[in-house]
Design a protein around this nucleic acid. Structure first.
Length: 104
DNA sequence: TACTTGACATTTT
DNA sequence: AAAAATGCCAAGT
């Protein structure tokens, strides 16, 4: 049936990603924490959603806890960071000290 | 039903 | 400071 809570979780994650301001970034843990009230789960579930539907959103605005991101996407994300002026730390990772955005 | 895999996080060497 | 080990939770097989 249609009331799949999984799809609902997916939309919730994508919604948060779409809400991230330009030039800013958030982490999987922050998203998981924000949705933990309603769905629980953990950062891995948020990541699983991105792996499935991440192509539909600004996935480069979602990074790991240390500001770095998956090797496979590093290249494409770098282009986006340069375009949006995201604060980088020098090694290609986002400087979360300045760029970290927490879901509302 | 049990095992393996995964856009992760945290703690300990 | 950097790397390895452990923990977490759910989906896929």
């Amino acid at each position: 049936m249609t009331s799949d809570r999984l799809d609902d979780y997916v939309e919730a994650v994508l919604s948060i990603v779409e809400q991230v301001p330009r030039g800013r970034a958030t982490t999987y843990g922050a998203i998981a924490d924000a949705l933990f009230d309603e769905f629980g789960g953990g950062p891995r579930q948020a990541a699983a959603v991105m792996a499935r539907h991440g192509s539909l959103v600004t996935w480069w605005r979602v990074v790991r806890a240390d500001g770095s991101l998956p090797e496979r996407l590093g290249d494409e994300a770098r282009q986006a960071y340069l375009s949006e002026g995201t604060p980088l730390r020098g090694t290609g990772a986002v400087d979360l000290r300045d760029a970290l955005w927490l879901p509302t």
